[in-house]
Design a binder for these strands. Structure first.
Lengths: 283, 283
DNA sequence: GTTCCGCATGAATCGATAG
DNA sequence: ACTATCGATTCATGCGGAA
């Protein structure tokens, strides 16, 4: 089966209209936060954030299948010594639109932004809000099971071995990379806390979104050849992961540099397919 | 200096009125969740939770010192497949009362038992909402520093000359690091995610509050002989910890069994003091 | 091929100073 | 008084080159 990757250049408020109703299985996105990332995106102000986002979430509600899921990564900033309330207001308004606020996952960031203030510690977590269109949504829990931590076996057995398991798997939610270590180990279901590092180093882009994040949700909420949408594609992490995991994908990006770069990234694949068509098609 | 422990039996909506204005340095509490502990507070329903809590938070605002802090441990429950919104509504309403919503800490519950539902993983985190009366509140950050990460061991052994100052290469948010400042550093400031185990095998009480939790906040927001209040004392974890840490404490509990038990726990101390008064006072 | 070590960088926030 | 800009502060990670 052919794997589709549709990329749109433009404002997602307009581009989303090109996507048919009830056609997307999973939306995973990390929109620009209020007043942040000014260098790349315009920067929506705190006061206007909800008003700005609601038309988008309305379109997302339209394109999502009834069995689908919407994962929204967001975190409110501090304004005048207080946490802003726009995320809470957004949740309340989205429920009025018809969204179900099913769950709130926590992304516990291992390497959060440094700094010290007299009245505040470093912010080490972000919200991963799960919204659904209906109470009957697809969830493939077995796809994200993690190796058992040492909490269950106590200290009785193989303490040294269980200690080798990476910290994130001990938290019951991580995605330790050495899967070979898991072989033969008992697995359990993770929790709603996800313990990951941000990817910060030389990537050209500020790809703060670690690829394990979309990977986990794609595993959890979709099967192969389902469709994944990211209306704020950025440098394309979600799209790329979806593609590798054999999911159809749709990406929308307003900044042409990002869009073109992702486009280019998928170009060789197309070229390759054409080539093989020539090769074998002419037989 | 004498250490005071005042215990009140009764509904905190009434008992709080006995406490003078601006007299408490820290409030740490874990109120009954909606629709739970039905028998005690008349079974506060999800719909009425905010309305029920607001008079209490108003009293708390009154008794708290301007430099004090209110830590509210709470988590919304799932109702009909959705997370309830009463916590968010409560935050919005408390801000109207004059509270500042300064921060939201996450309590990541380490080793609770795995479990799952068809739509949902086990809930491994709770909110620890920080409210303040003014922007100038007391915070003793050095009291809760944690050991530095392992990365430092290899890093700080030998410094090169370039480690002195870093150029602000990118977007002007220059983060000039002066590595030499870190030599010999063994502790760093924590983040707003608190990673603690739950006290699982609790004997009689339903109190799942690990004593490290109040301990951490008492360290962070009070000094010795400050006053700590818990208007939903339960089995008295917060009060007991405060007492051990040489803080005055005030506890309110509506269930007489709990109240009496805590009272009894502190009785020997009072007895002891009386005895010494007799001994030395009659000289 | 491993392992080690140097190094750049990140969804930040506060307080002081300037217009 | 109120907003805008700027400097200061700080920790953990993954990459790439070297041993």
């Amino acid at each position: 089966m052919e794997l589709k990757t549709d990329l749109f250049l433009g404002d997602c408020r307009k581009e989303l209209k090109k996507i048919p109703d009830n056609s997307v299985d999973l939306i995973v996105t990390s929109p620009p936060y209020a007043d942040q990332r000014q260098s790349t995106y315009g920067g929506v102000s705190v006061d206007e954030y909800v008003k700005w986002f609601l038309p988008i979430s309305k379109e997302l509600l339209r394109v999502l299948k009834p069995t689908g899921t919407f994962i929204l990564n967001i975190k409110e900033k501090v304004v005048d010594g207080e946490r802003s309330t726009y995320v809470m207001e957004l949740i309340l308004e989205m429920r009025k639109q018809g969204w179900l606020w099913t769950e709130e996952f926590i992304w516990h960031k291992k390497n959060c932004f440094p700094g010290k203030w007299s009245n505040r510690f470093r912010d080490a977590w972000e919200r991963l809000l799960q919204f659904n269109k209906s109470r009957k949504f697809n969830m493939y829990q077995d796809a994200v099971k993690v190796p058992i931590g040492n909490w269950a076996k106590g200290r009785l057995k193989n303490l040294s071995e269980t200690d080798k398991i990476r910290d994130n798997s001990r938290n019951g939610s991580g995605f330790g990379k050495n899967i070979s270590n898991w072989v033969g180990k008992e697995t359990v279901y993770p929790t709603n806390v996800i313990h990951l590092a941000t990817e910060c180093s030389n990537k050209n882009h500020s790809a703060v979104f670690p690829r394990e994040l979309p990977e986990w949700f794609i595993k959890l909420f979709t099967q192969e050849y389902d469709t994944v949408l990211d209306p704020f594609m950025g440098s394309g992490t979600t799209i790329e992961v979806a593609n590798r995991m054999k999911r159809h994908s749709i990406g929308i990006e307003i900044i042409s540099e990002y869009h073109d770069e992702v486009k280019q990234q998928f170009a060789p694949v197309e070229y390759f397919l054409m080539e093989s068509e020539i090769k074998y098609g002419t037989n």
